[in-house]
Amino acid sequence: MNAPVDYLLHLADNALILGQRNAEWCGHGPILEEDIALSNNSLDLIGQARMLYQHAAAQIGKGATEDTLAYFRDVPDFRNYTLCELPHMPLMAATSAGDRDFAMTIVRNFLYSSLMVLVWDQLQNSKDAQLAAIAAKSLKEARYHLRHSRDWLVRLGDGTEVSHAKVQAALDQLLPYTQEFWSTSPQESAALANGTGIDMAALQADWNQIVDEALQEATLQRPAAGGFVPTGKQGIHSEHLGFVLAEMQSLARQHPGATW
């Protein structure tokens, strides 16, 4: 039994796009250790994406490979959460690298890894044996990403006035995007129906607990979520994904088949 291709792409695109985003810190980390940490986080995420793309490509056939899926699809084909594609900047102030905000990075990684520890744990029981194997590997990495981002969330939240304000602002901006986790998409419904996917709504209580415990320890206030629910996983993205793809795909598109 194989998971629907679109479902595999949803999981893979989340990992690839967040991995690409976190890699923007490579060479620009606030301290050397965090530069290394975020690059390692990216390495894990891109590794997860590769395994999922390979699995999807085998089902698609017709010459599809992990590379064609990563580099030769366009914005509407991507199935990632909008949360994963947002820039590291608060409130779209600017697009220059100097405005990269570490608090945004940490809050996003925390919100996402809090979800993925639950998702990968459940997907270990997927009827898609290869997806279950990928989940078992990815779970270990997601737990470590959660540990890393949660430590920083607490350190910044329960830190100085400035760090607290920055991380609270990042939380206020990013938390509403997590509503997308609980909305349903056709690929998630299809995967749930054939036993290869999971019921996302059933994870919400556990996710809330992970998040609320950490926010309390970090002395942060959970903002109200409501209103607009993002639709990235259905291919309707924010304006930011196009820029991510332009940078990520340009080399492969200018030099198709290039190797080194």
Partner: peptide, 8 residues
């Protein structure tokens, strides 16, 4: 078998 998913 790979160690970490992205082990280079």
């Amino acid at each position: 078998t790979p160690t970490y998913s992205g082990c280079p």
